[in-house]
Write a protein that binds this DNA or RNA. Structure first.
Length: 403
RNA sequence: GGGUAGGUAGCGAAGUGGUUAAACGCAUCAGACUGUAAAUCUGACGGCUCAGGCCUUCGGAGGUUCGAAUCCUUCCCUACCCA
């Protein structure tokens, strides 16, 4: 433990919405320093999502900060609870996954999360380890410690009752099981998004009721997606995936609304508190073009998942296409081996549109060009005499060669 | 078990025998404007097409009809009330 209490609290409080209760975290850290014993930091991961995005990175970044301060990260793969599906923020019962699916997703989650986490300081456990061993007798023992009212208090359930949406029995058990995880691994702190407040507090309750030292609950804000409104999520297609192509990560970052710039800096990068203060100052300066600071944001994010060189390339590639309106350096190539093909058919064939009708629409609306020249004829025939660069929509390019 | 209200395109939601491939909103895509911003405006938004049409869709399966998302039968699913 090389960090003082104040240093630790400064880093840990950065970006955090709520620490329940903060005094207890202070106490736990003091104790850990005194006894030179790292704290167990629990993070449950939802194995229903196969791809991680920047939204998930918020808690992962925080977990990484814990690791850097010397604490132990315990990643719980909810392979067992995944079969239920977290009701948090859901209006409908989630589809139940099979055990194999959750196991598989959990593995891939860890692979992706290790880009952010310190692999050597991460313990990974599957909650089926203990949950699958509970028999009905043991389960009754646990359930007896909670009341129906306590579980129904949760907003999601209350709302669903109000809106006459179904709630399945097994969903009621979700918080209980997740809470049991905290008990099983002796969590000192549980990290989560604000939507996890209820679940995490059940964990705290559970430990108390079984006579253990209860965990501190630390909640991180939910990051809005690129649309600037909704929480980042795959289903809303407003996400930036951490394993996406660098130029996509950069491009998507550039498309976020300006008001989110600082929030993204705080939550999606790992800048130090003092660097963040600089960013804030620059943003507040009226002479600053927000685009430039957003560029820096994109750079930082790409750098986090790739490296500095890639990040710089992402910037120059972006400038080229969107600011200078030029053709990017690297675009996929396609060798055309037939003559006199209809342009619409060609666009579908190369996957640049989903159907002939869609390709046709793109042409009609002026979204298709060859060598910079807009194509207006929907029946245009590609003669196939010489190569050309095809542009479809805002950012689909294809270098077409003749065999 | 009884009763009531429902199940429509990615989502929400109109439509209750015929110009209905199905209003409208959201999302999405393209264009304009820009900083690929956001906001705004315009347009598109099932598929095939020899452009004349053709094919597939309104929980599932049958049926009535010249014609069905709309009527009938049956099955499946959901919520609410009663027990």
């Amino acid at each position: 433990m090389n960090y003082s209490l104040n240093e630790q609290m400064d880093v840990l409080k950065k970006g955090t919405v709520e620490i329940i209760p903060e005094e207890e975290l202070v106490r736990k850290i003091e104790k850990s320093i005194k006894q030179n014993k790292p704290l167990n930091i629990k993070l449950g991961c939802d194995p229903s999502v196969p791809d991680l995005h920047i939204g998930h990175s918020v808690v992962l970044n925080k977990l990484r900060e814990f690791q850097d301060l010397g604490h132990t990260a315990i990643l719980i793969v909810g392979d067992f609870t995944g079969m239920i599906g977290d009701p948090s923020g859901k209006k409908k019962t989630r589809p139940q996954l099979t055990f194999e699916e959750t196991k598989e997703n959990g593995k891939s989650y860890f692979e992706q999360a290790s880009v952010i986490l310190d692999r050597d300081k991460t313990k990974i456990v599957y909650n089926s380890e203990w949950l699958s061993k509970l028999d009905l007798h043991a389960l009754l023992g646990i359930l007896g410690k909670f009341t129906v009212q306590r579980i129904l208090e949760r907003d999601d359930f209350t709302n669903r009752l109000k809106e006459h949406q179904e709630i399945s029995m097994h969903e009621l058990l979700y918080p209980i099981m997740q809470g049991y995880d905290s008990y099983a691994i002796d969590a000192d702190v549980e990290l989560g998004g604000t939507d996890q407040k209820f679940n995490n507090l059940v964990g705290r309750d559970m430990q108390k009721r079984f006579g253990k030292d209860p965990q501190v609950v630390m909640l991180m804000p939910l990051l809005e997606g690129t649309d600037g409104n909704e929480k980042m999520s795959k289903s809303l297609n407003n996400y930036i995936g951490i394993s996406e192509d660098p130029k996509d990560i950069f491009g998507k970052t550039m498309s976020i609304p300006d008001i989110l710039i600082y929030k993204y800096f705080t939550l999606a990068t790992r800048l130090s508190p003092s660097e963040l203060a600089d960013v804030k100052k620059t943003l507040e300066n009226p002479d600053t073009n927000p685009r430039d600071i957003k560029r820096r944001l994109g750079f930082e994010i790409v750098k986090l998942y790739y490296d500095e060189k890639t990040a710089n390339e992402a910037i120059s590639g972006f400038d080229k296409i969107f600011i200078k309106k030029e053709i990017p350096d690297e675009i996929p190539e396609y060798t055309l081996d037939e003559k006199n093909i209809k342009l619409t058919a060609f666009i579908v064939k190369t996957g640049m549109a989903e159907s002939n009708a869609a390709a046709r629409r793109l042409i009609e609306q002026g979204g298709v060009s060859m060598d910079g020249e807009k194509i207006e004829d929907v029946n245009y025939i590609v003669a196939g005499d010489s190569g050309f660069v095809l542009k479809v929509g805002k950012r689909k390019f294809l270098k077409v060669k003749i065999y």
